[in-house]
Nucleic acid binder design. Structure first.
Lengths: 153, 153
DNA sequence: TGGGGTATCATGGATTTTTATGGGAGTCAA
DNA sequence: TTGACTCCCATAAAAATCCATGATACCCCA
């Protein structure tokens, strides 16, 4: 199955619309979806995005509706409550609700980040910071580890 | 199958009518229903809502589980007795009976909360409190480290 | 190889449709 | 008659849809 790869930054217009990267759209439609499901990441820094199939799988895992049982994870319920299904319009755009953008700090630009079977949406600056941190950590690890002189800094 | 997702707050007018969120309505009608079934949650904080199909499955499951168990049967009886089927009117609204709203503390606003295969109806404030509690708990769990144990104190 | 044409994409704006909400008229029963 | 309820209509706001354009990438053919 095709994977969500690479990082694309797009603009959010005054009406709150953003283009979903064309490649991502084609992957979604390959899977048979014309909408995406968004919900806040647990770390609170990004929005997670997946298709409805993933949500269905999740629900199946936590079990169906049974008012007599208390064992249904409240986390899972919170997830369903925080998630939104967004239709992709005829021009390939979505409108992310303010509840999600505000929490993450997204304003007029956002970054789509491939994660394989799903992707994330970030505000540009925090994403930058995060990437730099990751790279730095990798660099340190490399430096501390072996004498790998193939420098690429 | 489409799932009930996200959280929508709507107003209750003087006549006691509330709009069922459009997305929820379309999911219901997709499943072939034009009414919803309501009954109080056992925790007493919210109203549970589902379609008649879910209700039938539910009662069948409970009834079929153990025909000789008095507890189960009385639970099922209580559920049936407390449940109401509400028609959705031409404008997409329902009128929640006072028996249910008073118990939950709903007055002039209510919140529809998706739960996947069903949804709930809350008074705004208790729902807020609940969501904050869930988030805080998740935060603590995260901060405590990745040791995923049954404990969540 | 390079240049022109074409398809695709991201973006902006306008227009139409849907939705939530308010209110009124008619109906039925107590 | 009064009160509760149903059906119908009005409207403002929000959402979905449609159309236009500049830019870029892609392809084809001389």
């Amino acid at each position: 199955m095709a994977l969500f790869l690479s990082t694309i930054q797009n603009k959010i217009d005054k009406k709150g619309r953003v283009s979903v990267p064309a490649r991502f759209r084609s992957i979604l439609s390959e899977r048979g979806y014309s909408s995406i499901v968004l919900f806040p990441s647990f770390e609170g820094e990004a929005i997670n995005a997946c298709d409805m199939g993933v949500m269905e799988g999740l629900l199946e895992k936590i079990g169906g509706f049974d008012p007599f049982s208390e064992d249904r994870e409240s986390d899972a319920d919170a997830l369903m409550a925080a998630a939104v299904e967004l239709p992709i319009d005829g021009d390939g755009r979505i409108t992310i609700p303010p509840t999600l953008t505000e929490e993450i700090g997204i304003e007029d630009q956002c970054v789509f980040v491939g994660r394989g079977d799903s992707f994330q949406i970030w505000a540009p600056e925090p994403f930058d910071t995060r990437m730099k941190a990751v790279k730095e950590r990798a660099r340190l690890k490399r430096a501390a580890g072996q004498k790998r002189e193939a420098s690429d800094d």
